[in-house]
Design a protein around this nucleic acid. Structure first.
Lengths: 197, 197
DNA sequence: GTCTATAATCAGATAGAC
DNA sequence: GTCTATCTGATTATAGAC
């Protein structure tokens, strides 16, 4: 049963402004601070407009995540075109500025099941896109797929980088330099020194 | 300037009950649901008692984290006595039931600076305790510390296991079996097959 | 699309009696 | 230690005018 309430179009400028504001607050103060009123205020709008553009906060957060994930997929697709896809994957994840945002979404997903399904769906899409490109690359480097399957290489690279970024933010850099050295030594063995472009 | 308010002793039974209740709610519904009123209710107490035992929610969360971290240090110390410390570390982190709780605390730390310092402090203590034991083990296995420093081995093991647990919860198990196989193959090469005890 | 106005609920915190 | 009572402010959400 559809809601009788009116609803703003997805293309509206103010809708995007609300999503921007939500993400900014989530980053600066954590997702519980991203209330309808504060989000609207940061967007320079009245708080009631949140309910005009979204059925509720759940829908707003889901929309924000989806938009951010779609952007990420486009950026990743571009990065994976590199002649050194492993380096590209590694660099992208270790530099990624929106890692903190993902942390917020994952924490939020613990009690917002709609968001949880969304994160699960996009995580799989990210991994699928990486998979065949990395698989092709590893084979061309002469890596035995039984020794190191592409999915495993991906999980390893992304896990390590994700935790490094997270700990860096927390101010716990112990062992990071040594770990990065090991990973990058291996990447160099496979793909050579990273090129700038 | 100290608060003039009265305060319950840290040994009080109800204080512990409040901490238990807070952790349980955090796990089930996420940390924003752990309000003073809901925590007290779950502990079977009146909500005003939260303010008798703690100066505020910040203090409650910090106390809950510290208690949980101290417990973790004791469990880890026991685990690291194993003849196979790397296996122990790996198994402990991949099975750890309180990984979700840590996710909550880390998300919370983004806007509660007291908690942030606490997490940083304990993360370092965990890593220090692991360090010399893993270092001694790796040397006894004949591993070159320049090739694989103990800190790096620790960061690698804990990063990978942490992300595996997190993704498992999200329902994204893709590539996990392959990754676990690679890690465990390496652990077996160093420490042999894991013993049950 | 955007506004005013309003309802219902919940939060953290404190004073003071018992 | 625990209670009643109370204060103050924030939150989501809706109806209906403009």
């Amino acid at each position: 049963m559809a809601s009788p309430r009116r609803m703003g179009s997805p293309e509206a400028k103010n809708r995007a402004a609300l999503l921007d504001a939500a993400e900014q607050i989530m980053l600066e103060e954590g997702y519980p601070a991203a209330s309808s009123r504060r989000v609207a205020e940061k967007a320079g709008l009245k708080h009631q407009l949140v309910h005009y553009y979204f059925h509720g906060m759940d829908e707003l957060f889901t929309a924000a995540f989806r938009r951010s994930a779609e952007r990420g997929l486009r950026v990743q697709a571009e990065a994976l075109k590199s002649a050194q896809p492993l380096w590209a994957l590694w660099r992208w994840h270790t530099n990624s500025l929106n890692a903190p945002l993902w942390t917020e979404y994952i924490a939020m997903a613990n009690h917002r099941k709609g968001l949880r399904a969304e994160i699960s769906y996009y995580s799989k899409r990210f991994r699928e896109e990486q998979r065949w490109i990395v698989d092709r690359a590893l084979r061309s480097y002469g890596v035995d797929p039984d020794e190191l399957p592409a999915v495993a290489a991906i999980v390893l690279l992304t896990s390590i980088s994700r935790v490094l970024v997270m700990e860096e933010e927390l101010g716990v850099p112990d062992g990071h330099a040594e770990t990065v050295a090991i990973v990058e030594r291996y990447l160099t063995k496979l793909e050579g020194e990273p090129t700038v472009g």
